[in-house]
Design a protein around this nucleic acid. Structure first.
Length: 557
RNA sequence: UGGGGUAUCGCCAAGCGGUAAGGCAACAGGUUUUGAUCCUGUCAUGCGUAGGUUCGAAUCCUGCUACCCCAGCCA
């Protein structure tokens, strides 16, 4: 599909109009501007797909720009993870990654220019006073007593700020706009503050750092961004964005806001995700239960699935909550089409084929994919003793049961039809072994005179490979863990059963040749992937198969 | 009447004055050596609400309602 045949949205409509009127001479330049203060999550994926996707659609380019103006909260680890994630999603930024900190000198010069124009002043109000003078949502603020300093004095004071003559928080540089504006952002916003901290990019070169509102618009202008796409909460900042650029007379990118992604049953706030990591509710930013890009990757989500998901949810200005089933559908769709099949017995019980020769061994050739012949075939060994899943046998089967039962017959996937004669139990009354007979005339052929109830997966005991399987479920059991509740926080909704570790799983030997990160469909169980980090046979469940039996069962209860 | 936004099926979302696309979910069938996939069908006389303009309104106008964002020296 060509880029332009993909569905558009209100932003592409704006750009189409701009291109018609020749506003930017047909040039489209966007940017993805994360602050390196955490790992990227699925919400960022939407923004990445939007910004890079628009650039592709219009043969433009997209910068990766780190909005690194608050060094205390930022780190190189986050920078590296962000680069890795954007790349993994399949996007290429223009040239080298950019940093707002690359522009610190230019930004400083712009601030000086503002002072010279009489449009900025150094203010000595402390935090509390600042708040008082700002007024409230319904009442206007009042002018700072420092508002009318001379240009010369402001220039000297700002130089002192830069040269480290003030302690953190003692003074700030403010834009002189309008303390009575109904828009709080225009009530003489702070544009520079003093912070004696080491910066991950500029070291100890600066002790004054520009604020977002001053930095972002000018960084966009410096990079000749044409369309500066951000989320809805910045709508109120647009007048300030425009004021800075208009006042300084630079090129003027257009800020366009869209609704950020909200997903039910999940939390998409860097602060909360960081809390989950810091307080060890999960095993790190890339825990497969996290909605981070790295977590999803480790869970087995593919970049293609995430891109498709982002395309399907659309881009609008109305904020809603997308159902996680949309995300799950996207990964099932990709893996169903592209993942090889394999057999894995998660909770094994032994099956002995009483009429199968003791030392005999057969090798079945099985298709890797039911529809795609190009996926090839693999060898699956078969012998007298097998494992099947405990859930596939029932002494007293419920209605519509299509699995093994006493005296019932069932097809072993890719192999013979077997009939169960006896269930051997331990002292606790649990079934520990099944004695079955196989029908030697049923390899690739239907049996004569009777019909198997269904098909189950299995693995030959002597050939089976031990594996650890991590069964992941949603991290929260409330559909809106993020919402504000009177007496609860999102931590109160953590699903205690979000991870079940199965250490006794038996998988077919072909899986020994799999690679880390490789995805499979374990037939009748779900989609799994070899863990990206751990060595050995460790598989993570990406998502279950759609399960209509579970619905039938649930209805019966 | 502080300011700024948004309202179309359970969820996402097309629609831009000519008579409500699509996807997810759900439900009902069919195929199936995966209770998967796939296929077929059902699912808004209705577009937050009340009026108005018009031959004709989800689209234009007016009033109302609900929800979201803003009082960090965060972004």
């Amino acid at each position: 599909m060509s880029e332009t045949s993909k569905p558009g949205n209100f932003i592409t409509q704006i750009i189409d109009k701009d291109n018609e009127s020749g506003k930017h001479n047909g040039v489209v330049m966007t940017r993805f501007p994360p602050e390196p203060n955490g790992y990227l999550h699925i919400g960022h994926a939407k923004s990445i797909c939007l910004n890079f996707g628009i650039a592709q659609r219009y043969n433009g380019q997209c910068n990766l720009r780190f909005d690194d103006t608050n060094p205390e909260k930022e780190s190189v680890e986050y920078i590296e993870s962000i680069k890795r994630d954007v790349e993994w999603l399949g996007f290429e930024w223009k040239d080298e990654p950019k940093f707002a900190s690359d522009y610190f000198q230019a930004l400083y010069d712009f601030a000086v220019q503002l002072i010279e124009m009489g449009k900025a002043y150094v203010c000595e109000l402390n935090g509390e006073q600042m708040r008082e003078y700002r007024g409230t949502l319904k009442e206007p603020g009042k002018n700072s007593p420092y508002r009318d300093r001379s240009v010369a004095e402001n220039l000297a004071l700002f130089t002192d700020m830069k040269n480290g003559k003030y302690k953190d928080g003692e003074v700030v540089l403010r834009a002189k706009i309008d303390m009575a504006s109904p828009n709080m952002n225009l009530r003489d916003p702070i544009i520079y503050r003093v912070r004696h901290v080491h910066h991950h990019q500029t070291g100890d070169q600066w002790c004054v750092y520009p604020m977002y509102d001053f930095t972002h618009c000018l960084s966009d202008a410096i990079e000749n961004i044409t369309h500066s796409i951000c989320t809805l909460e910045f709508q109120d900042h647009r007048p300030l964005y425009d004021w800075v650029l208009d006042t300084l007379g630079t090129v003027h990118p257009q800020q366009i806001e869209f609704a950020r992604l909200n997903l039910n049953y999940t939390v998409t706030s860097k602060r909360k995700l960081k809390q989950l990591v810091d307080e060890k509710h999960v095993d790190g930013w890339d825990d497969p239960r996290m909605p981070t890009i790295s977590g999803l990757r480790r869970r087995g989500y593919t970049a293609l699935a995430i891109r498709n998901f982002c395309e399907r949810i659309g881009v609008t200005r109305s904020d809603g909550v997308v159902d996680v089933s949309m995300l799950e559908h996207a990964i099932r769709e990709d893996l169903d089409a592209n993942a090889n099949r394999a057999m894995a017995v998660l909770n094994p019980i032994k099956v002995t084929l009483t009429n199968y020769p003791e030392d005999k061994e057969e090798i079945f050739t099985v298709n890797n994919h039911p529809k795609n012949e190009d996926a090839g075939q693999r060898k699956v060994p078969f012998s007298k003793t097998l494992y099947i899943d405990a859930a596939d046998f029932a002494e007293e089967p419920p209605r519509k049961w299509k699995r093994l039962t006493l005296e019932g017959a069932v097809r072993l996937r890719g192999g013979y039809v077997i009939t169960c004669d006896e269930a051997i139990k331990n002292e606790a009354g649990e079934v520990v072994e099944l004695l079955c007979r196989y029908d030697e005339n049923t390899l690739g052929v239907n049996p004569e005179g009777y019909k198997p109830k269904g098909v189950i997966h299995w693995v030959s005991a002597q050939h089976a490979v031990d594996a650890t399987v991590n069964l992941y479920d949603r991290l929260f059991n409330n559909d809106a863990p993020d919402a504000n509740y009177e007496d609860k926080t999102f931590l109160d909704f953590i699903n205690e059963e979000s991870l079940t570790v199965l250490t006794n799983a038996k998988v077919e030997p072909s899986l020994l040749a799999s690679e880390k990160g490789q995805g499979f469909q374990f037939e009748r169980e779900g989609y799994f992937c070899r863990d990206l980090e751990k060595d050995g046979m460790v598989f993570n469940r990406t998502v279950t198969l759609r399960d209509s039996w579970a619905k039938i069962e649930a209805k019966g209860k």
